[in-house]
Design a protein around this nucleic acid. Sequence first.
DNA 1: CAGTATCCGTTGCGATACTG
DNA 2: CAGTATCGCAACGGATACTG
Lengths: 116, 116
Amino acid sequence: MSTQPGDVFSSHCGSRTVLDHVTSKWAVLVLSALDRGPMRFSALRRRIDGVSEKMLAQTLRTLEADGFVVREVAPTTPPQVTYRLSWLGAELTVHLSGLLDFITTRLPDIQAARRA
Amino acid sequence: MSTQPGDVFSSHCGSRTVLDHVTSKWAVLVLSALDRGPMRFSALRRRIDGVSEKMLAQTLRTLEADGFVVREVAPTTPPQVTYRLSWLGAELTVHLSGLLDFITTRLPDIQAARRA
DNA sequence: CAGTATCCGTTGCGATACTG
DNA sequence: CAGTATCGCAACGGATACTG
């Protein structure tokens, strides 16, 4: 019930770090985009409106380091780099997609409830 | 399939704003804490390790404005202010709790998969 | 195509002090 | 107790330019 090791409520625990990565500004959108299938860098850029190259690259590197995304390079010229969800990433994205669906479908209610 | 009005993938849509609020550094933790029942300001501060008064107040105000959290003041001295989830907030938190549970329980796998 | 590097303004956010 | 106000630094993150 109270704070336990690994609990998100305690700082300096790994789970807090992962939570911050996953809920960062662009990570949610990247993961959800990849949920529909592997995508290349430029396709992701086009899909996610407003993301800069820098932030997309940074987000992808973080997600790859956390084991949620797999980066695959085809040895062609020009090189084709494809990103896809790992098994762990797919499990994660189930939860995120549920969140996105909720926000999207309930947006009218949210905006109706909004004050000031 | 492609970008639609209200879609999170397009910027300048309300859903993107709400998503940013909800996935902000402290909002996830506040909502999850309130999921167990109403809490007072100072109790939330103690529960959520590392949050400053400023950020807790700011987060609560945003969540209240979005209609996810309800603020109730008991007319006593000293005043007792209690925060609780609205119906909409409770629905939202279902998804967030799922996310937190996933991260917490799968943390070993995540850290095992982590590179560099 | 798929990035990296640099610059640099904006914002996040902790610390501190003060209020009803 | 339950906040608000102000300060100030560090990190976030967008724009631009450059690379293999």
